[in-house]
Amino acid sequence: MSHAISLTVNGEARAVTLDDPRVTLLDLLRERMALPGTKKGCDRGQCGACTVLIDNRRVNACLTLAVTLDGAEVTTIEGLATGDTLHPVQAAFIDHDGFQCGYCTPGQIMSAVGLISEGHAGDDPERIREGMSGNLCRCAAYHGITEAVLDATRRMADADTASDADERASA
């Protein structure tokens, strides 16, 4: 039995016919949509390498059956930058050396984007460490990751404040 689903991936509407209900979102992206930026580390929700946003919430793509995603909006690492302009979290990961081998990095970055938008960690390093603990890094770039998320959080907050100010000024 095949299943037809429609979903939006990185802003693009995609119609997918799944011939197999077992396909996870992770394998759908990697093996059937030519979006291999999302990585497989454990395939069991234990490492966070496959983190993507579904309807703007960070989740493990490896434990999400693709067939359940009819109508969902998925954002992957490939959809984060705007043209050549990196997302502030991406830029901060480079600036703070928040990775070494780079394999867990797409998941770390998507998780950080999710964490920042959840808004519970703020710029408290301890809460950021806790909030990023679902993303393992075997190279152990954790120090740089925390610094990067902290920095990006502040940059994004400043940008919001600035755009609010612009709106007020123009009003």
Binding site: G37, I77, E78, L86, I94, T105
Partner: peptide, 9 residues
């Protein structure tokens, strides 16, 4: 290789 690694490319 930073940009490649943070953009998933």
């Amino acid at each position: 290789d930073g940009i490649a690694k943070v953009t998933g490319t």
